[in-house]
Design a protein around this nucleic acid. Structure first.
Length: 103
DNA sequence: CTAATGACCATTA
DNA sequence: ATAATGGCCATTA
């Protein structure tokens, strides 16, 4: 468990149910905007439960990957009420915005 | 130490 | 619109 991973997981844990975030957004939250790739890498090696890593997707609305199989990722997201009918996620509707919660 | 890898991103053709 | 390219960074061999 590296310090970097710890930050990533901590940020991902804050994503509420029914919402998604992006690798880029997570990178920004932890203070390393240019480490988006490393963020994905960290999530790839996340063997912990309690971290909703299935709610993290690409900035362009694509699903991204999942260490237990993308299929499983889709199931989880759909079960939380997110629509993936067109094979990409509408970030305008589902993206988690921190500001909304601070208010 | 160097080199290779990857659940990314933005730019270019 | 899609496809290829270069850059970026933490981890691992």
């Amino acid at each position: 468990m590296t310090p970097f991973q710890q930050k990533v997981y901590d940020a991902v844990k804050k994503i509420p149910r029914g919402r998604v975030s992006t690798y880029k957004a997570i990178a920004g939250i932890i203070g390393r905007p240019s480490s988006v790739r490393a963020v994905g890498n960290a999530l790839n090696k996340n063997y912990f439960g309690g971290v909703p890593c299935h709610r993290v997707i690409c900035s362009n609305g694509n699903l991204g990957g999942y260490n237990r199989g993308v299929k499983n990722k889709i199931e989880l997201l759909v079960s939380e009420g997110i629509d993936i009918s067109k094979k990409n996620i509408n970030l305008n509707n589902y993206k988690w915005k921190k500001k909304k919660f601070l208010k």
